[in-house]
Design a protein around this nucleic acid. Structure first.
Length: 962
RNA sequence: GCGGAGGUAGCCAAGCCUGGUCCAAGGCGCGGGGCUCAGAACCCCGUGGCGUAGGCCUUCGUGGGUUCAAAUCCCACCCUCCGCACCA
């Protein structure tokens, strides 16, 4: 019978809302559980990836709630940042692909489309849309605490202002300068996601070696300043524009482009005159180490867009330099234009300065020849350069010509050398992009050094130490993620925490800056605790002074005074303080693993900076990144599944269970339509199955099969509980759903008439085990089973060791094994059995086996020794002749037995196999479609034409099939 | 380049930390059977190879090693994936 999941889910959603069962208030003396997920950014609809993370947390929350924890799961919305503004803007401009995506994927209607050009409207639109979906998904959220970020929610902005003023007063916010990739058109930093070209490119610092030409400096740019010891000449692009300019008071010669760039790097630049590169060619300059006078040669490979547009030449170690010189040697006519004598070039001798394994004197020349490089514009030069650079950097040793640096590794001395050159005034530096970067707005980017930039001082060693400590104190799920946090803490540098554009909260002391999006989302879990009061009492931002927050979160200040100044009742302040104290710390914050490197670690940093240790995070969970049909989810690729669509197509429970079964730990789950469909039909089957069973009214004996199924159930309770406590939601769902089902299947197969009372108990437990995963169906079934309260609030099943009937478990295990053995025989022989005879082992074999197990347990595994030992027993000695063949097989088996099972066997004693088989013979006959007879090996009247009975062993009766 | 994670049967995916119960859970798919007027659902059996008796042989990226015993521990190699920041 098909089930109307939609109506069922709708019904229970309303019931839960009506009964307000997920609205959590402090209950003194009751243990609490506070779980959160990062609030989603509202530039689009929620997708199944959001569903994955939040379902995991909801499963955990529901589990804890049933365990009796007063559980709080709040939710909020992130509006801070640039993308919402950007999206609204693109829409306004009529971006076609954007409009298509909005209509097709997000399901936006025509009349809404126009309104979405307002960023605030867009954020609100998606927020409303998403909230509805989350409710339909069955998340057990306390919606009274909902909020969104930015100045559009002044009380939140006030909270952020308090946070930043406090951080600043503690010295965690500092002002500094910093190079960024900059779009001159947008006048803002261009992050990776805002680029048309140049993903992953970041500013690199070039060293400038200052060469003297007459009364000016020609700063040539390099990443390898150590090669100065092998300089032979300089290259200038004769066709490119250069300038002479005052740079910070010095007369410099650089490319025209470089002069512009330097201006953006806090240099005072005053251009004196412009000229073509050819003007420099043929002149000489003085190198600063040996004071030699060297020539300037034409180099068409020199890119005036890169750094200073001046390159010094080290033909021994730089393939391009060598090839450029070779070009000039081969085509001296090119020199004549500039009036340079070919003799000048011919007299250039490469100077070797780095010794590197696998190469001789002049690595650059060798590689150029080996690769057969044509000329200075050959594309493979880049490859050659990389190869030489890498080799020389990691393994190269500087030669005696390098003076005080001789004998050391290049990689070792580089930083030191740069510093000393700078100190000596022969070097300087500038930033540039190693590759072209183009902004979304199509403008090529440059490097700009931002002044007055505000930073969170994550480089602070004391702060890092506290963060490390917080990670050590927290539970991390899975444990393997812990080291990621430590690494991230070490790796983190100062973080620019304010931007000029986008939505957000202004910096309280400088309102032309907005607190950046990753920086305004670090401690808002604390805000949840008091958001309830802000809404209920209609508090406004003016009342929420710094003193008020200080009191609530830090218990600072005098209550009466704060009350008087803020106009808030002292009792209310106290209530808020208590609410915070009750819920804090966060017991679990769960997110996708990619947030470790930013958000989650920021979250830790800010907590240790602001709160007492008892309020630091207690648990952090990580999960993988959701894939769609095996591929990364992306709107442009079209494989984007919104949460709404999933819930519409499969229903909330099927969506939840599909997600829960998807993956565990930090593995990436894969959303597949086929899986979701399968899960949905399994759920239908599950529902019908339970309904069918619950209506059975069979009064049956309370035999060992009932003991077995209930014992089995206890094991499952234990497993599911342990898995959930460790946030292993996948295993938990798998056991609760499939394994329990399999147990029940076996019971029903075994038992002729299932016992109604046992089934009732079983179903009651099963439904509760499943309630965190598929709450709607479970709620329905729970009520249909005659319960009047909500399963969402029902007590979680407790493992009861008293119900674990070991004998029953062993008995069924024995039968399953025997059935399996029999089937193997049938398979091997291809027989369709008419008669199956079983022979249980003779009494002496049990005695011998027990003794053997004991000996093996004591570490005696030598066959001869064991037989001798057994013969000491007169009873066994009588069967001396039979012992070897029995011991041979039994020993082999016993050696493989795991220790705890061996112990159990010895403790429990052996089963009465003959009796068990006699009881089960009808069942076995049924299963095997055959007559089944059972004998004791010692039975004198047994039917045993092929003398199989002698191979019977304890636990493994002999089998004869015909 | 630097740092990290991982490679398990047709597919997805457990196990690996703490070696033996591992030819290796569970699910999907596939084959066979049952139920049924038929189908779907459901139930049972099978799904590396060989085998007329519960067994044997070969398998857990590749190649070595440790061990009585290795998917599990050690070493080397091959391959895949992720992060490397001003941004949600």
């Amino acid at each position: 019978m098909p089930i109307d999941f939609k109506a069922l889910e709708e019904k229970w959603r309303r019931e839960w809302e009506k009964a307000r069962i997920f609205e959590s208030d402090p209950i003194p003396d009751r243990r609490k559980c506070f779980v959160t997920v990062p609030y989603p950014y509202m530039d689009g609809p929620l997708h199944v990836g959001h569903g994955f993370t939040s379902t995991r947390v909801d499963i955990y929350a529901r589990f804890r709630r049933m365990q009796g924890y007063n559980t709080l799961f709040p939710w909020a919305w992130h509006w801070t940042g640039e993308p919402i503004v950007g999206a609204a803007l693109r829409l306004k401009r009529g971006d076609e692909s954007m409009i298509r995506a909005l209509k097709l994927i997000d399901g936006v209607s025509e009349e809404e489309l126009e309104k979405l050009t307002d960023p605030a409207y867009m954020a609100r639109y998606y927020t409303e849309d998403s909230k509805e979906v989350l409710k339909r998904l069955g998340l057990s959220i306390d919606w009274r605490r909902e909020f969104h970020t930015t100045y559009l929610e002044p009380t939140y902005s006030r909270f952020i202002a308090w946070q930043y003023e406090t951080l600043r007063s503690k010295g965690f916010v500092t002002k500094g300068t910093h190079p960024v990739v900059w779009c001159p058109h947008d006048e803002s930093p261009t992050g990776d996601h805002d680029r048309l070209e140049g993903e992953g490119v970041s500013p690199e610092e070039y060293t400038l070696i200052k060469f003297r030409i007459a009364n000016a400096f020609a700063p040539a740019a390099t990443f390898r300043p150590e090669t100065i010891y092998g300089i032979t000449n300089m290259f200038v692009n004769p066709d490119a524009p250069y300038v002479e300019a005052f740079v910070d008071g010095e007369r410099w010669i650089v490319s025209q482009k470089a002069a512009m760039k330097l201006k953006e790097q806090l240099r005072k630049v005053e251009v004196l005159r412009e000229f073509k590169g050819s003007e420099l060619v043929g002149k000489t300059f003085e190198e600063p180490i040996g004071g030699r006078s060297l020539p300037i040669l034409p180099g068409w490979f020199v890119d005036p867009e890169s750094a200073t547009g001046l390159v010094y030449s080290v033909p021994s170690h730089a393939p391009v330099d060598w090839v450029a010189i070779r070009d000039l040697l081969e085509k001296p006519e090119k020199l004549q234009v500039f009036g340079i004598s070919p003799e000048v070039v011919r007299s250039i001798k490469p100077i070797s300065l780095i010794k590197v394994e696998g190469y001789g004197e002049h690595p650059a020349i060798e590689i150029v020849e080996r690769m057969g490089i044509k000329d200075q514009l050959d594309a493979r030069l880049e490859e050659a350069t990389n190869e030489i650079y890498r080799k020389e950097f990691h393994t190269g040793i500087l030669k005696p010509i390098c003076g005080k640096y001789a004998g050391r590794l290049v990689s070792e001395v580089k930083a030191e050398l740069i510093q000393e050159f700078k100190d000596a005034g022969i070097a300087d530096s500038m930033y540039d992009l190693p590759r072209r970067v183009v902004c979304r707005c199509t403008t090529p980017c440059i490097v700009k050094i931002l002044e007055d930039q505000w930073f969170l001082k994550y480089s602070d060693q004391d702060w890092k130490a506290l963060a490390h400590k917080a990670v050590d104190l927290a539970a991390i799920y899975p444990e393997s993620a812990r080291s990621y946090f430590h690494q991230t803490i070490d790796w983190l540098r100062d973080w620019p925490c304010a931007r000029r554009t986008g939505l957000g909260t202004p910096l309280p002391w400088s309102d032309d800056w907005i607190v950046e999006t990753l920086s305004d989302s670090t401690i808002y879990m604390a805000f949840y605790t008091i958001r309830k009061h802000i809404v209920a009492y209609g508090l406004n931002e003016k009342q929420l002074t710094n003193e008020v927050f200080d009191y609530i979160f830090l218990e600072k200040g005098n209550l009466e005074e704060i009350s008087r100044k803020s106009g808030l009742e002292a009792s209310l302040l106290k209530e808020m303080r208590n609410e915070f104290l009750y819920w804090y710390p966060v017991d679990l914050r769960n997110s996708a693993k990619e947030l470790i490197r930013n958000h989650l670690t920021f979250f830790i940093f800010h907590h240790v900076a602001l709160f007492e240790q008892r309020h630091w995070p207690r648990g952090i969970g990580l999960n993988g990144y959701l894939m769609i049909e095996g591929a990364k989810m992306s709107k442009s690729k079209g494989n984007f599944v919104t949460l709404k669509k999933a819930v519409n197509s499969y229903g909330a429970d099927a969506t939840r269970l599909t997600l829960a079964l998807g993956a565990q730990g930090m593995d990436d789950p894969d959303w597949r339509t086929s899986t979701a469909q399968e899960v949905r039909s399994r759920l239908e089957a599950f529902y019908n199955f339970v309904m069918e069973l619950s209506s059975l009214e069979v009064k049956a004996s309370n035999g060992h099969l009932e003991a077995w199924i209930l014992a089995r159930l206890q094991e499952r309770i234990k497993q599911v509980t342990e898995e959930l406590e460790a946030l292993r939601t996948r295993s938990a769902a798998e056991i609760a759903f499939y394994e329990v089902w399999n147990d029940l299947r076996w019971y029903l197969r075994r038992v002729k008439a299932p016992d109604a009372a046992t089934l009732k108990e079983f179903l009651g437990v099963w439904i509760r085990l499943l309630a965190p995963f598929i709450p709607f169906i479970c709620e329905e079934l729970w009520h249909r089973l005659g319960n009047r309260d909500f399963v969402s609030n029902a007590p979680w099943p407790l493992y009861d060791a008293k119900k674990v009937d070991e004998k029953a478990l062993e008995t069924e295990r024995f039968l399953k094994d025997l059935l399996e053995d029999t089937q193997r025989v049938l398979q091997a022989t291809g027989l369709k059995p008419r008669l199956v005879s079983y022979y249980t082992a003779a009494a002496w074999k049990y005695k011998a086996y027990r003794e053997l197990l004991r000996l093996v347990g004591d570490g005696i595994t030598d066959m001869g020794a064991i037989i001798r030992k057994l013969r000491e027993d007169p009873y066994l000695a009588e069967r001396s002749r039979l012992l070897p063949s029995f011991v041979n097989k039994a020993l082999e088996e016993a050696k493989k037995l795991p220790k705890d099972r061996m112990r159990k066997l010895l403790e429990l004693g052996f089963l009465n196999e003959l009796e068990i088989l006699k009881d089960a013979s009808a069942f076995l006959a049924d299963e095997l479609h055959s007559t089944v007879i059972v004998y004791d090996e010692d039975d004198g009247k047994k039917y045993d034409p092929k003398n199989r009975a002698s191979s019977a062993r304890p636990g493994r009766p002999a089998i004869y099939v015909e």
